[in-house]
Amino acid sequence: MARNAKKALEELAHRGPHEVLHGDLALVGLPGVVCTPRSGKGLPAVAFGHGWLQSPRRYAGLLRHLASWGVVAAAPGTQRGPLASHRLLAADLRTALDICTGVRLGEGAISVDERKLAVAGHALGGGSAILAAAEDPRIRAAATFAVTETMPSALAAAHRVTVPGLHLAGGKDLLAPAVSNAQPIAAAWGGPVQLRELPKATHLGFTEGRHWTELLLDGKPEYRTQRTARALLTAFLLRTLNGDERGAALLDDDFSGATLDRARTRTAARAA
C-alpha cells in the first residue's frame, strides 16, 4: 500500500471530528433511521438502501461514521420483506433525501444543501440507489456495495447515470459476484466511475451485527470489509459532494484489500 493511501485509509476509517446525533425517520412519515452531525449548515446528505431482508440498523455504524465526517446519512426501513419492491425502495431513497433537505434536523441546527445529495446501498439497496440516481437530477453521486440486479433493471439504468459512481464488490461474494453484477454495471455507467474488488469480502461482510439471514445468505459481518468500505465511501462522498480531497490518495491508488479495476474505471470522480 502506498504511504499516502495508507495514511488516508487510517484517517478516514476512524470517526471524524463531529459529534453524532441519531433520529427516527418515522417521526416525519418514513420508517428508518437518520444520523447527523450535531450542527452544521449546507451539509451534504446521502440516502442509503439496505440489502435484501436486512434492517437499516445493520448499517448503523456506517451511518454514524458518515455523520461524524459531516455527512447527513438516512436509511429507509421499508421494503424489507422477501418480495421487496426495488422501484419503491428507490422512491423511498428519494423521499429520504426530500426529508433531509426539507426538514430542519437537529433541533434546527442542521441544514442540507440540495446541491450536495447522494445515494448508496448494499445489494438490492445498491441497485435501488442506481434506479434513484437515474431518475433524480438532484443526485450528484452514487455508490454501491455488492450490488445486485433489480427490477426494473439497475444495469439498464446505469447507462442513464452521469454522476460519479463508486462500486465495491466482494471477491468471495457467492450471491453477487462482480463478474455478473458490479462489472457490467460499471462498464455501462454513463459518468465517471470506479470499481474496486475487496478480495476477502463476502456478501454480508458489509453488514454489522448478527442476524438470522446469515443462515440463508452468503457470509457474515467482517470488520476489515466494513472498515475499508467506510473509508472509501467517506472519501468518495467528501470529494464528490464537498470538493474535499483528503481521501484522494485512497481513491486514486491501489491498496491492499481493495483492488482497483482499472479496465472499468473511467476518470477520477471529482466534485462538480
Rank of each mutant, 00 (worst) to 15 (best):
71 V>T: 10
244 D>R: 08
63 L>D: 04
89 L>N: 03
236 F>L: 06
61 G>A: 06
5 A>Q: 12
45 A>N: 00
230 R>C: 12
38 R>S: 06
168 L>H: 10
263 A>P: 14
34 V>M: 05
77 G>N: 07
172 K>E: 13
66 L>R: 02
74 A>T: 01
201 A>R: 02
36 T>C: 11
264 R>V: 01
151 M>E: 13
29 G>F: 10
222 E>C: 11
222 E>L: 13
225 T>H: 02
81 G>P: 11
139 I>G: 00
227 R>I: 04
112 V>K: 00
163 V>A: 05
3 R>T: 15
271 A>V: 14
236 F>D: 01
200 K>P: 14
185 I>E: 08
81 G>I: 06
103 V>G: 04
268 A>F: 15
121 G>Y: 07
138 R>S: 01
256 S>D: 15
61 G>Y: 09
102 G>N: 05
7 K>Y: 12
124 L>Y: 11
233 L>G: 06
252 D>K: 04
255 F>S: 02
184 P>T: 04
31 P>N: 08
18 H>L: 01
60 A>S: 15
7 K>A: 11
73 A>I: 04
227 R>L: 09
40 G>P: 11
94 R>D: 07
235 A>H: 01
58 R>K: 12
33 V>Q: 06
174 L>G: 15
131 L>P: 05
67 A>Y: 06
110 I>T: 05
70 G>K: 04
42 G>P: 09
82 P>L: 02
259 T>W: 14
204 L>R: 05
140 R>T: 00
103 V>A: 04
77 G>S: 06
23 G>M: 10
117 L>Q: 00
27 L>P: 05
131 L>E: 07
217 L>R: 06
200 K>E: 15
187 A>V: 10
256 S>K: 15
28 V>L: 11
